[in-house]
Each structure stands twice: as C-alpha cells, then as structure tokens.
Design a protein around this nucleic acid. Structure first.
Lengths: 215, 215
DNA sequence: TCGGTAAGCTGACGGCATGACAGGACAAGT
DNA sequence: ACTTGTCCTGTCATGCCGTCAGCTTACCGA
C-alpha cells in the first residue's frame, strides 16, 4: 500500500533520511502540544530536531503537510478503537459496560493524541477535504460500529423506525470527540473528570438503545 | 461595564478611530471565513480594510487579540440563545418541540458565526484561558438552562438520582457545537442535513428527560 | 581499493510579515 | 489662524519563509 517514502523533489529516502524525517515529525508533534498551532514555526521545529529549515522543506511541503503525515500515522492506531465495540452487546448489564468502556477508551485515545486531533478538527471544520477525510478515517471504526449497533436494534424492533442510525452514531461520536477535547472546560464548569465519564456513557447508551441502562 | 475603547498605547478612540477599528474587525471576520486561521495575516486584513498594518497594531496587540474582540461581541449575541429554553416544558409533546427548537436555533447560531467559533474552540482546546472563558460565556446560557431542566426533572423523581445535571448539559452542548461545526462531515458520511436535525433533537430529548419523546 | 552516483544536509538569499516609532494629516474648539 | 489631541502612515530593524546551488556522506559495483 504505502509506496516508498519520498522527498519533495522526488528522491527516495534511505535509512538516514527516514530517521531525520521521523525526528522532524516527532519534534513537530511535541511543538504542537506545547504551543498554539498558529505559532508553530518551521524554524523552531528544525532547531528542535537539530537540523535546518531547508531540511524540513526537503521532506514536507509545509507545516500543514507534516501535520497530515502525523495524523495519518495516528489514524492507523485509531483503527484499533474498533475493538472497543467489536462483538459487544448493547443489551442489559453488558450494554451498560459496553457504553462505559467505549467512553473510557475513546477519551483515553483522544487525550493521548489531543494536539494533533485539535489541528485535524480545525482543518476539517475549515472545510479542508484532506483533513475531514482523515477525521472520517479516524472516527470511521467507532462510527460504523455504533451505526451498525443501532441498525441492528432497529431491525429487531427495539428502536423506532424513523431513527437514522448514521445520524445518531455520527452525533454521538462528535459528542465524544468534543467532550474529550474540552475536558478542561468541564472542570472549569464545576464538573469533575470522574463524574463526567459515567454521564457521557449514559448518553451514549440512551442514544444507541433509546433506553436507560440497567446497572 | 465596557469602558471607553482604547488604542494599544492608551489613547481613547474617537468617532473616526472606532469606525476604522470596527472596519478592521469586520475585515478580519471575513478573512477568517475565507481562509485558514493559520494563514490570516495582519497585512491582508489591513489591505482589505484599505489601511496599513501599522493602523491595525494601533488597535490590537495581534490577530489573536482582535479575534477575542470579535468573539466578545458575539458572546453578547449568544446570550440570546437563552430564549430557546426559557420557560419551556420538557414534558410530552411540548418537550419534543423544545428539543427541536433548541437544535434548530443552536445550529443556526453556530452556522452564522462558524468562522470565529472555530477559532474560539481551537483556543479553548489549546488551553488558553481567555478563550475557554469566552467559550463558557457563549455556551453558559444554554448550558445553565439545560442543567436546570435536568435538575428540576430530577427533583421531581423523573430522572435518576445519580445523574449529574451539569455533566449531562455540558455534554449535550458540546455535542451540539461539534455537530454544528462538522455539518459538512456528516453529508460526506451520507447523512443529509434534514435527517440530522431530528436525530440530534432526539438525543437531546433523551439526554434531558431520559425518555423517548412523544411526537 | 577506487571512483561514481545518489542521498542527505546546509549556507545564503530575496521576499514578506511583524511590530515599533516619529512625524504628518485632520477635525474641533477658541 | 492657532492649538490640541486624535488618527493614520512611511519607514525601519528584525525575523521567518521557501528555494537553490553546492558541499558532504553513504552505498555499490568494478
């Protein structure tokens, strides 16, 4: 699938080249965590990586391009989120546990990658196709699983006919993402971390099944 | 509350000054709608406003500072969102209508101000206090109203004791904001605008009351 | 061992944005 | 007309951007 890694001017990158390339990505990643996106400069990233700006431009067209690269790497990891839902039940006590574990796993994933996800979210909101395709890629696993779960319950008559599984799943995923990236905002609102999770899980359960969980 | 409008170097702005200041803000606003936040340059804003960069720096410390100003103006307007919930009932058919109108009004508001809200969201996610205080200010009206509604239903025994009204309200508001700013993403996911709203309204209703709406 | 070739890196440069200042234009009152 | 304070801009030093030519390094086949 992934062809060879190439420089901007078309050369194939060897071992050493890939190393510096990766180092630049790592430094950019750190940079994004520590300073606002708008203020991240190529020269700072290069300095941090112990190299020169020119080297940066050899591997990436610009900062945005490098961010896309990082996000791409993360998207692969994000596919692992499917495990949170694969083969899980949404009925009875098991359903409540499924919801809880989904929230837990999702929030953890988001926290671990918050810096890049912030930027991806921004790019997507700004209407950049590359970014919202990436966002889709990251969220697809969870979204599809949720959508399937709703559709299945619907086919069994446990959920109203006029519910749109895709819309519900998408909204719930959007909620999870938003809650994850504004966790600090919640504490400022007087809601503690520990209290937040079960309540979000409750909302997820309600959304998927239409019923309160049996705990 | 708002003292006199002042320039960066402390002078009070007169009529003419306020006009150019406002013009700069308007142009910045437009700029934010048409190009990515990262690429908005002072010089472009100034050119668009038919003035020079130096003038911009007379009224604002930097782009961020000007954005905060715009957001502040919008926050005032955002307080009007309270009307969507003031004195509304969450019981029976009226409850369903309340949910629908809330979703409608909120999405409309967000769409109207999406460019600035995007930036505010980013700033808040990046942990900038000024931005997440502003975000709180904007969302407070809706958040508090929702929180009160849940708390009231709870006191009547219609909602479980272990529900945290603040957490529920915050999560729902976060969902609304996220859905609003990623509406395009939904259509890319095969969910149409028209289908989205009622499903989000359903989630809101479920979240607040714990029950399916009677339509 | 020894070129040859491609990969890898950087110094340097024109171009542009930033942010500061001093001075000129302008409006309003006297 | 003169004064005063507001308002705007030309200009400048600084620093980042993005590119290129050219140097160094690693690999490979003869």
């Amino acid at each position: 699938m992934t062809g060879q890694v190439r420089t901007v001017d078309g050369r194939v990158a060897g071992r050493r080249g890939q190393a510096t390339r990766q180092k630049l990505l790592d430094c950019l990643s750190e940079m994004l965590s520590s300073s606002p996106y708008r203020d991240v400069k190529v020269i700072d990233v290069a300095r941090k990586a112990g190299t020169s700006p020119a080297t940066f431009y050899q591997y990436f067209p610009d900062v945005e391009g490098a961010v896309l690269e990082i996000a791409e790497q993360m998207a692969a990891e994000g596919a692992g989120l499917t495990e949170l839902l694969e083969g899980r039940s949404w009925v009875g006590k098991a359903g409540w546990q499924t919801a809880q574990e989904l929230v837990d796993g999702f929030l953890e994933f988001w926290k671990r990658n918050d810096a890049i996800l912030r930027v991806v979210d921004l790019g997507a909101a700004e209407g950049d196709k590359r970014f919202y395709k990436l966002r889709m890629k990251i969220l697809n696993s969870v979204n599809n699983s949720l959508s399937d779960a709703v559709a299945e319950l619907q086919s069994k008559g446990k959920v109203d006919k006029d519910v749109n599984p895709g819309a519900i799943a998408g909204s719930l995923v959007a909620m999870l993402a938003a809650v994850a990236s504004h966790q600090k905002g919640f504490t400022a609102w007087g809601v503690k971390q520990a209290e937040l999770k079960p309540n979000v899980a409750l909302l997820v359960h309600l959304g998927v099944t239409g019923k309160k969980p049996t705990k």
